[in-house]
Design a protein around this nucleic acid. Structure first.
Lengths: 344, 344
DNA sequence: CTGAAAGCGCTTACAG
DNA sequence: CTGAAAGCGCTTACAG
């Protein structure tokens, strides 16, 4: 019988620590995982040996033996957006406290890509998953269910959602914005939105605006609703186009701050005063929105808290008794310089 | 002899796929890892069985058996910065093509935290690591060497660096900015910088400015060099303070766009015209810098390419014959509206 | 409090 | 082209 030769990782193994400390491998393992079960004297010897060998436990071996990976996943649309980056920070901070590693995936608003990312994460053995929004293929949620991985949908909250969710009501939020605009005396309102495809949150925002208008006996002129890329360029372009029509609106509600900042810049180059000639509102309250003049009227969401709460819920959900609970946050309207009464 | 009972993961295992396809486990493994070694007929049977069982390979088992984790790591200062986020996108895109997963860590400019992150990543078995900058504890680089993990320092390049690096020469870049400012006719130059602690790139930037001034027989007045948080608020505050002195400078070079945007806003509220009363320059060319008026004179670095190149180098470095090669990128000066001749 | 040893789910050297 | 089986580095049920 020849002994097979396998390369191995070349690093110090737990067994060598055990040999140096003159204890069993079980004891070494316990020192680092259940120290209360090991006498102080033995603990000291083991820790010394581990340090001497520069030993770092091998996560794969540990995961295989314990069926616990200590990995959680998060899927966001894109890193190119400070609000999602902030959610990730919140997640990571809380997970790190429990020695969990965060695996991050970006879907770029592509449902197929989010499914791919989830597959990859399941292969890595994520124990829980946070995912922005609910616009994902049914196969994605089925895969999570099949592998019994607890998950939470973030950044969107609906009371009747089939998923546990931590976020805010997009529809209600935009009703609040429209109410603010109408309360200032505006009767004709334009809207500039980011793409509706694979993002039901944007549709909810439009519905929220319509809800408010309807309550006040007003309606949206479809020619004054622009939908396009979530860029300042498109915000500027759409604003110019809306404001170049005869009998133009006196207020433009934008789907986010990016679009609104573009609209504000376009207003300046058109020689329009904001808000005297046109009120402009955003959503997100980006860092620049309150720092560069004119300060934007917008809505702020505690994204750090969304990330933190998601992590707390997911960590709790590992004990199967605890299901993930939905939490609704309230966005805050921040009235600044770009909204005001119509006319001069 | 009692058979021990271990919980297991509860998911389908490769062995069940083998049984259903009526082949050995070796064959199933080969179908997914070395398909050319398996006949088409058998492949089809195995793939069908895997699909029927909804089997996803267990990464921990695979890593343990092969000593290959297919994980790479990246350590950046913060996600709260679009330039680092862009590097991560570049890294991730190239790594994904090779079926590598990226593990992301943020140090928040804290050397101790970057060391912690590296330790955690070594435990996870990262096969390669990209890390922003070289301001890290020696123990960090020693740990990488001890575990034979190839790495690359990004976002900074020095010909005499002890590390393989992919980035640009911060000192040379700021010399170019200062040359531009001086060529416009400015003789008194103020400087606003982000914190120098644990970030030698900022010190290099200051040196670059000094190099240029010296070449032209000029020098910096230490009272006109402000150092503080990398925020628009500090940029504004520092600018106001520098410009409120008698005999003030006619140009202010900022360490990045954030500070410069704050300076531009402060100029507006002080009633100073930019660039007629004061030239202001930034660095990074953030998305907003060319989209909100006045368009900033700044320098652009191809951060996506830094990320991509880092990934390519790291993937190549897995075959030990190939060491990681340094690559120097050239930042591009983008002259826009905030720089001009002094006076009117 | 401690140890001997089975087992986690894969890969791969070896044999045919 | 395919298979039997050892082994990767840990954890933990079991026994003392």
């Amino acid at each position: 019988m020849t002994r097979r030769v396998r390369p191995g990782s070349g690093r110090a193994r737990l067994e060598e620590v055990a040999r140096l400390a003159e204890v069993s491998t079980a004891t070494v393992s316990r020192v680092f995982n259940e120290p209360s079960k090991v006498s102080d004297a033995v603990q000291a010897r083991v820790r010394e040996a581990a340090a001497a060998l520069n030993w770092i436990p091998n996560a794969a071996g540990r995961a295989l033996a314990s069926s616990r990976t200590h990995i959680a996943g998060a899927i966001i649309p894109t890193l190119d957006n400070e609000i999602f980056a902030r959610q990730v920070s919140g997640l990571q901070a809380v997970l790190a406290e429990q020695a969990f590693t965060l695996l991050l995936g970006c879907s770029n608003y592509d449902p197929q890509e989010s499914l791919n990312q989830v597959q990859a994460m399941l292969a890595r053995g994520v124990e829980a998953l946070a995912i922005v929004g609910e616009d994902h293929p049914p196969a994605l949620f089925e895969a999570l269910a099949a592998h019994r991985v607890p998950y939470v949908v973030t950044y969107a909250y609906r009371a009747d959602s089939p998923h546990p969710c931590i976020g805010f009501d997009n529809r209600a939020a935009f009703s609040i914005i429209a109410d603010h605009v109408i309360s200032l005396g505006h009767r004709r309102v334009g809207v500039i939105l980011q793409p509706l495809a694979n993002n039901s949150r944007v549709a909810a925002r439009l519905d929220g605006i319509r809800d408010s208008l309807e309550r006040h006996g007003l309606e949206l002129d479809p020619r004054e609703v622009a939908v396009g890329p979530s860029s300042m360029e498109f915000g500027a372009e759409a604003f110019s186009s809306i404001m170049s029509r005869p009998n133009r609106p006196t207020a433009v509600i934008c789907g986010n701050d990016n679009l609104a900042l573009g609209a504000v810049a376009a207003a300046a180059s058109l020689g329009l005063r904001v808000p005297a000639d046109c009120t402009i509102t955003g959503f997100d309250d980006l860092a620049i929105s309150s720092r560069l003049p004119p300060h934007l009227t917008t809505m702020w969401v505690d994204n750090l808290q969304i990330g933190r709460l998601a992590a707390v819920q997911l960590l709790a959900a590992r004990s199967p008794a605890d299901a993930v609970h939905s939490v609704e946050l309230q966005p805050v309207l921040r009235i600044r310089e770009t909204s005001g009464r119509p006319g001069r």
